[in-house]
């Protein structure tokens, strides 16, 4: 039973990932679609950050908000992503002590 679930899940996660690899050589996109696709990473990042970040700690959105704000500040100062991540972890560690 679990094996069937694993096989089914792997098919439905694999196909959306690899079909575009074939699509992009079969179809020549119009210019506006190319622009749309090149904006997708930023939009995806936005959608993945919010509102998810509010649920970093259950029932206390302030933890995610403060952690996120620290990350924004550190990133704005030009710190390497690694330090942004570690800084945010330490912040959350401290404020949830």
């Amino acid at each position: 039973m679990i094996f069937i679930i694993i096989i089914g899940m792997s098919l439905v996660t694999m196909l959306p990932r690899i079909i575009p690899a074939f699509l992009v050589e079969k179809i020549i996109f119009k210019d506006w679609i190319n622009k749309w696709l090149s904006a997708i990473p930023y939009a995806a990042l936005g959608a993945m950050i919010f509102p998810g970040v509010l649920y970093v700690k259950e029932n206390d959105p302030s933890v995610g908000i403060i952690g996120g704000l620290v990350a924004i500040i550190l990133a704005f100062l030009g710190l390497n992503v690694m330090f942004v991540v570690v800084g945010a972890i330490l912040t959350v560690l401290l404020i949830t002590m």
């Binding site: 679930i5 439905v12 996660t13 959306p16 992009v24 997708i40």
Partner: peptide, 27 residues
Amino acid sequence: AIEIIVATFVLNFRHFIMSLSFMNQVQ
């Protein structure tokens, strides 16, 4: 099994959009 597989498809469909964006840029 079918419920789980359908729910997985829905949750992961975003990868189609992401993949399309990425593949288009490295094509």
